[in-house]
């Protein structure tokens, strides 16, 4: 096994710069997926809990499909399906974000549903008798309690998502994983993988730190 980078700071820096380009794309997938899937997950959760069967049944089915099939298959499916059915050729990046958002929305929906159901009915009733509208009750009374309830589970999903972004490589999105693979085969050295490992760990370290801070901030039961 040959050492080609770790004994040469200039080359190592060159490699790291290339890989940081991949980190940007990885972060792009990560952030956009969260921005899309969290609100979508909230809507899906509400649809899943709806008393109207015409709404809750298809939503349950959607959740079942998204959670019951491999994310890799979903990415491939949407890549070919959207490429063939849309009048224009979608970008690979957009397809990955699209697939991830739909998939993570299903996971978030189940987490949010649990978090909403864990809020006692008495909270809603207290809101109602105090004259809050249903929307006010939801946003002022229910949501803050749901956020606290779901943060640990959401943290887990966020950490999984950082790693799942690597699936972008399956349709050749140039994110961290793709670049690492390419650098490894070009250089016939596994050092780019080591750099990738460190970069993923760094990203997750930051993500975990942020989530823990949020959890502490939201935990009104420990104040």
């Amino acid at each position: 096994m040959s050492i080609k980078y770790f004994n040469d700071p200039a080359r190592l820096w060159g490699l790291t710069k290339i890989m940081l380009g991949g980190v940007q794309v990885t972060l792009g997938i990560f952030v956009l997926t969260l921005i899309l899937s969290i609100p979508l997950g909230m809507l899906v959760a509400l649809g899943r809990m709806s008393k109207r069967k015409a709404l809750s049944t298809p939503v349950s089915f959607y959740i079942y499909i998204m959670r019951g099939t491999p994310l890799m298959l979903q990415v491939l499916f949407f890549w070919f399906f959207l490429s063939q059915s849309l009048p224009f050729k979608p970008s690979r990046f957009a397809v990955v974000v699209f697939s991830f958002a739909l998939n993570y929305a299903a996971y978030f929906a189940e987490i949010f549903r649990g978090g909403i159901q864990a809020v006692p009915v008495g909270q809603r009733e207290a809101g109602q008798v105090l004259g809050y509208t249903r929307v006010q009750t939801f946003f002022r009374i229910i949501v803050p309690q749901v956020v606290r309830n779901v943060l640990p589970a959401v943290t887990n999903e966020i950490i999984t998502l950082v790693k799942d972004t690597a699936l972008g490589s399956i349709i050749a999105v140039v994110e961290l994983m793709s670049i690492a693979k390419k650098q490894v085969s070009n250089s016939t050295s596994i050092e780019p993988y080591v750099v990738a490992i460190l970069l993923y760990l760094l990203l997750n370290g930051i993500a975990e730190r942020l989530c823990k801070t949020a959890e502490r901030k939201m935990d009104y039961l420990r104040r």
Binding site: P120, G122, E125, A126, V129, G131, P144, R148, Y220
Partner: peptide
Amino acid sequence: LKMGMVFQSFNLFPH
């Protein structure tokens, strides 16, 4: 708005 209600289980807002 003219009626106040006090529950057996208080139902204070914990947050």
